[in-house]
């Protein structure tokens, strides 16, 4: 928004949308962080707080949607303004989903901590969460600065997250095979890991939206890749 509009309240509207997105982003980052922390430290109080906090994000998304629709109706935006507004709608949707995934992790804290779990179960999950959070932060920083220099890093990091997830998948399977009493906790942890991996995907989506807002072009299509956990089978594991 380097240039100004003749109607100054139009600028104020666009600025308001951007600041709402930033606030939602902050909330989403905090929720994911606290959900994983609650999981690792078995902090049920913190988990409950995360679950309640999700309402803030839902409210934020509704607000952004309404505001965006009013701006479109009143100002008939064109070009980068229109992209800005549509981008805000999309990003708020992604952030709301990130919040849901964080909430889902927090909900599982009760089930995971029901039985005492060794710390090694959480180490990989913590590392995975750190990668996803770094990615989310970088993407939201990119949104704040409107520069596309670092967009490529976001995709590289997504590859790292997928590799880490696949590794974690195998590790958790091993624990389940070692001792069937681990199955409850490990299954929940598996879902938690999947949720974190999905958060990474949403961050990538946001990166693509930011790229579109800034350049007006779609981000160049990605080479085909995915996490390889769908190929992990019991037979491979037994061979190891």
């Amino acid at each position: 928004m380097q240039t100004q509009h003749i109607v100054r309240s139009y600028d104020a509207d666009l600025k308001y949308l951007a600041s709402r997105i930033a606030a939602m982003g902050g909330h989403a980052e905090r929720m994911v962080e606290q959900a994983v922390q609650a999981l690792v430290t078995s902090d049920l109080g913190l988990a409950r707080k995360v679950v309640e906090d999700d309402a803030v994000l839902d409210e934020g998304q509704r607000e952004v949607d309404e505001k965006a629709i009013i701006v479109i109706a009143k100002r008939q935006p064109m070009a980068d303004d229109l992209r800005e507004i549509i981008g805000a709608i999309r990003i708020s949707g992604d952030l709301e989903r990130v919040g849901d995934l964080g909430k889902n992790i927090a909900k599982r804290v009760v089930a995971v901590t029901e039985t005492q779990q060794p710390l090694r179960l959480f180490r990989g999950l913590e590392a995975l969460a750190e990668l996803a959070l770094t990615q989310l932060k970088e993407v939201l920083d990119t949104y704040a600065s409107r520069s596309t220099d670092r967009i490529q890093f976001v995709r590289d990091r997504d590859d790292q997250i997928d590799a880490m997830y696949t590794s974690l998948f195998r590790e958790l399977l091993t624990y389940m095979m070692e001792d069937p009493r681990n199955i409850t906790a490990c299954t929940h942890l598996l879902f938690c890991a999947k949720n974190i991996e999905r958060i990474g995907d949403h961050a990538t989506n946001i990166a693509e939206t930011v790229y579109y807002i800034v350049t007006g072009l779609q981000m160049p299509p990605e080479r085909p890749k995915e996490d390889k956990s769908h190929k992990v089978m019991l037979e491979d594991m037994v061979d190891d």
Binding site: A18, S19, A22, G26, R30
Partner: peptide, 12 residues
């Protein structure tokens, strides 16, 4: 814009 860079709820 500061609130865009410091997004944590307490900073906002």
């Amino acid at each position: 814009s500061l609130p865009l860079r410091f997004r944590a709820p307490e900073m906002q």
